[in-house]
Design a protein around this nucleic acid. Structure first.
Lengths: 230, 230
DNA sequence: CGAAAGTTTGAGTTGCTTCAACCGCGGTGG
DNA sequence: CCACCGCGGTTGAAGCAACTCAAACTTTCG
């Protein structure tokens, strides 16, 4: 457990709380709690009451909706600086998703009432939260579009291209099964498609590392798929 | 075109602007514009700049993302009292969806800058917008869950049960093709599934009217599907 | 080193789509 | 007044993309 004294510095580095004046920061620091979560541990489960908001300081969190048979559909990943759980907090409804740590993580937790008070004091905080929710809404709409309007290959290629890469190489940040769920595929299908791309000479896969020798060619492959659909 | 004098009264009936004091209301009234949209007309297209927010006063609006071949995926419907377009406004990004009137509609439009100013004056407005965005986020997550974790029949039955009904009768508010798109199905599939439910004696369809003699039986049918999947 | 989890590969299946034809109805104009 | 068109909806046949099931292989980690 890290010492409580970290909290002020930690907070001031989060997008949500940047540029707060000293008084505000002190108030928020008092209101916040550190939460350490080990890899594979759950932050909350579906049905838990949502009376606060989390911000990821370090680590990564997976938001997913559990299915009947032990399956799950991954909704989104959160990394350092991202806030999650706000939407359910504002609605005063229990979580309909579950949050699980994909790495050992450090979270900041803020109670709804303290946040309410902070918003009253500083409207810019509200605006930042509105911006944050808007980003999430945007990505969700994009995901819905992706799942409904693109086929499996397009989704995989888009994902590969969307991930940060250096020297023409990208990394799967998590297990392939989890990525597959995020893309709305089974692990088997993802595996087969990666194999297909490899056969086509567009990528080469080694564990979590993917080499993309010709990005333009891969993009072209995706548009070829688009043409097939229309 | 309705007279401008309606605007104050109109505004004060919208959830977003309820409980504003007289000064606030006057300010907002000055900032807002009425927009009349005829059925089938577009409020905005994909790519248009988003420098304001719309509130539906009367009518109904369809938000959809257009696909390559003239197809489209319906994201959401909005009725009286609903706000839309906020997310893109806050992000300062052009719309990635298009909004089309499904009936003759009256909208209220507010410029981003005026809204910003209003939020600074009244934090409760910000909270209402946060709540509004949260609701939308919630429904989108629910939609993603539905599309990924439920089969076609479950989605149709859930939709039938989710619509308001009186005397065991529900209405398709729009063309079946539009409903099908919202459910992530083709019109053909929707038609077939409705037929199946009819054959099973669970519903009877007459145009846009659907009679549900035994709601519990229909619910049971849906759970039977769930069992088949797991 | 051994167990458990993750990944790949193969074979077979299926739920939904696609394509195409057809029906019914409301509007329009000859 | 009726023929014609167009659109929304239905129905049928055929196809296929992605899934399921199962087994082998690989990596991770205690």
């Amino acid at each position: 457990m890290r010492p409580k004294t970290d909290l002020g510095a930690l907070l001031s580095h989060q997008p949500l709380f940047r540029n707060l004046d000293a008084d505000q920061l002190a108030l928020m620091t008092a209101a916040c709690h550190q939460v350490n979560i080990e890899k594979h541990q759950f932050v909350f489960h579906r049905g838990d009451p949502a009376n606060g908001l989390y911000v990821v300081a370090v680590g990564s969190i997976k938001l997913a909706v559990p299915a009947a048979n032990g399956q799950e559909k991954v909704i989104e990943f959160f990394g350092p600086g991202d806030a999650f759980g706000e939407a359910f907090m504002f609605l005063d409804k229990p979580y309909m998703v579950e949050a699980q740590a994909l790495d050992d993580s450090l979270l900041i937790w803020i109670d709804k009432r303290d946040l309410d008070a902070a918003i009253d004091r500083d409207p810019s905080l509200a605006k930042r939260m509105l911006a944050g929710l808007s980003v999430r809404l945007h990505t969700l709409v994009k995901d819905i579009e992706t799942v409904n309007l693109q086929n499996a290959m397009q989704r995989v290629v888009m994902y590969l291209l969307s991930q940060p890469r250096e020297d023409g190489e990208m990394h799967f940040p998590f297990n392939k099964g989890i990525i597959a769920s995020k893309l709305g595929l089974t692990p088997e299908t993802l595996s087969r498609l990666l194999h297909q791309l490899t056969d086509a000479g567009l990528i080469s896969v080694d564990g979590k590392r993917v080499l993309i020798p010709d990005v333009a060619a891969l993009e072209h492959r995706m548009y070829a798929e688009t043409a097939r659909i229309s």
